[in-house]
């Protein structure tokens, strides 16, 4: 890892901007939004340069159109069943395939009974630009671990950057502030769809409104802002 690019971490770059010079030896790990061109790591969209703890550089951008990537968590709507697969709309350029056998405990005799319009929380296992994305509702051990059909509830759409922020660990300040006041269940998809459910419609609507309007509220002010919103 050269330390030349560290000056740009946290800065906004535009497409084509050089982020870091490639070192003469060794390797640089780059993530979404960046590519190597000539002797530089170059941005290909606009966003804020970020660096993970193990030194990987990536670009945090705000966009609306979801492009699938492996290991992304998504909320999808079943649109059709074709042979052994469900066809799922995840907001990507192409519909995703969800094999009927990739649910916990599913066998050829015992298939999940899902119809068009049902919601699923799934994980992307194949994301290739030349092939349709493939989803699964189990983890590596074959357990559901939170994936599967989502019953009831409400889906709201938000920007991809906002969804990523909601999935942060430790929990996003916005969710922490909401969770302290209200009881609800939610599944955040990196495709910009958030499913939420609670015991009463009033709570669901309240949480949905706050989540949607919170896009663009600075992290430092979130707690105060949520308190003000819930008072109304």
């Amino acid at each position: 890892m050269g330390d030349q690019g560290c000056g740009l971490v946290g800065k906004v770059v535009a497409p084509g901007d050089a982020v870091q010079a490639l070192p003469a030896s060794g390797s640089v790990r780059i993530g979404p939004g960046l590519r190597a061109e000539g002797s530089y790591v170059v941005a290909q969209k606009c966003g804020v340069v970020r660096q993970t703890r193990n030194g990987k550089l990536w670009l945090e951008s705000k966009q609306k159109r979801y492009i699938p990537a492996e290991e992304d968590l998504v909320v999808g709507t079943i649109t059709d069943r074709r042979g052994e697969n469900f066809v799922v709309d995840i907001g990507a350029p192409f519909p995703a395939q969800l094999p009927m056998l990739s649910f916990e405990g599913a066998t050829r005799r015992n298939r999940p009974n899902l119809v068009a319009g049902d919601l699923v929380y799934a994980r992307v296992i194949t994301a290739n630009r030349d092939m349709d994305p493939v989803l699964t509702c189990v983890d590596a051990q074959g357990k559901s671990s939170g994936f599967g059909a989502l019953k009831g509830g409400f889906v709201l759409e938000c920007g991809l950057g906002h969804a990523r922020a909601l999935l942060a660990r430790p929990p996003a300040p916005l969710l922490a502030a909401l969770g302290a006041k209200l009881q609800f269940e939610l599944a955040v998809g990196l495709n910009g769809r958030v499913w939420l459910d609670s015991s009463s419609c009033a709570t669901t609507v309240k949480v949905a409104n706050v989540l949607q309007q919170a896009q663009g509220v600075a992290a430092a002010e979130v707690q105060q802002w949520v308190a003000a919103q819930l008072q109304q």
Binding site: V9, G10, V12, C46, V48, E60
Partner: peptide, 22 residues
């Protein structure tokens, strides 16, 4: 001008990066 406008539109994200918790 475009570079300035882009930087301004990401202002809240930049504040977050200076936050020690992130």
């Amino acid at each position: 001008f475009v570079a300035l406008a882009l930087t301004n539109s990401f202002k809240d994200a930049m504040v977050k990066s200076s936050d020690p918790a992130v």
